[in-house]
């Protein structure tokens, strides 16, 4: 029987290595899918999923995630993107990341240069605010593409709509995000 998340977090706090076994059994496929979407490589995805476990082991405690799955998902996404950036310096990756980045570029108003960490936090807060006011189906669509880097074809299959319809909706959401960011001062 699978452990619930609360029990797994307790195992982390007890420094019981069974925590890693349980996380791998419960969320291994989830973490690999995030890494695979970003890196486009099964072997690298496996490594990133393992690295995510290691980072979770190092960070819990002191952290006590209220939502273990999302916490692990964010770690896997960050690690995969760091690896993507390193590999991208040498060659182009085969995952969805290049397309996702190009699309996200359309959401960026010109002018403001968020070098300071505080602006990064503001940006994340504004994306949250933007997401909070979207209808749920649109929010799932946006998060599927720009958090999970799901391919347009896989999103179309999940929603039961055409790839063109997915692209049109994403295009409209990107424009809305751009406008949202502009209204909140993310421009010159």
């Amino acid at each position: 029987m699978a452990f619930n998340d609360e029990t797994i977090v307790r195992l982390f706090f007890d420094r019981n290595e069974q925590a890693l076994t349980e996380v791998l059994a419960k969320y291994g496929a989830y973490l690999r899918s995030i890494a695979r979407n970003i890196l486009g490589d099964e072997g690298a995805a496996e490594e990133c999923a393992n690295d995510a476990l290691l980072q979770a082991w190092k960070s819990i405690p002191p952290n006590r995630p209220a939502d273990l799955k999302a916490y692990l998902g964010k770690i896997a996404r960050n690690l995969s993107f760091n690896r993507y950036q390193k590999e991208h310096a040498k060659k182009r990756g085969g995952g969805e990341t290049e397309s996702v980045l190009e699309e996200l570029e359309e959401c960026i108003p010109g002018g403001r240069n968020p070098e300071e960490e505080v602006i990064q936090k503001e940006l994340a807060a504004e994306i949250n605010a933007f997401l909070s006011k979207l209808p749920k189906d649109r929010r799932i669509l946006f998060v599927s593409r720009y958090f999970y880097s799901d391919s347009v074809s896989s999103i179309a299959a999940r929603f039961g709509i055409s790839e063109n319809a997915v692209s049109v909706r994403l295009n409209r959401l990107r424009k809305q995000l751009k406008s949202h960011l502009q209204e909140r001062g993310f421009e010159s």
Binding site: Y30, A66, D67, K69, A70, Y71, G73, K74, R77, N78, F81, Q85, T97, V100, L101, E102, L104, E105, C107, I108, P109, R112, N113, P114, Q120, K121, L123, A124, I127, N128, L131, S132, K136, D137, R139, I140, L141, V143, S144, Y146, F147, Y148, R158, F159, G160, F186
Partner: peptide, 26 residues
Amino acid sequence: MKKEELFQAMGSIDETYVNEGRENPG
């Protein structure tokens, strides 16, 4: 702002939305 920074900011979205992104849309 660079597109990479926006991608990274997406990594800090609310955990509710992270989980929601794996729900069946219907």
